[in-house]
Amino acid sequence: MRIEKHPILQFDRGEKVTFLFNGQEMEGYTHETIAAALHAAGVRELGHSQNLDRPRGLFCAIGNCSSCFMTVDGEPNVRVCVTKLKQGMVVEEQHGKGVVKG
């Protein structure tokens, strides 16, 4: 859910865009990070731990901890908490270490 009324802040979210999350179409805004847009849509499980495959969400939201790795437009290990949303992005939950395309 997005905050519509705040006693102190106003939010400039940018333009509305659509993107794919695990093949499903979703909406977000260009000034949002991928993590924020997913969180607003109720998605908290972003990836899985490399060895035990336990579900992982974000922890720091500023690019410090690597807890939020996802595969974006085919590129694995993208920190979605510091990556801004773009029209048509393909965002996928990641299992394992991910494979970097040659």
């Binding site: 924020a36 974000l58 939201a61």
Partner: peptide, 17 residues
């Protein structure tokens, strides 16, 4: 399970509950 800074970033920068 989030750090306090992450919660602040989501709500005060991202405008997301």
């Amino acid at each position: 399970i989030y750090g306090a800074g992450a919660v602040q970033t989501l709500m005060n920068v991202g405008g997301v509950k």
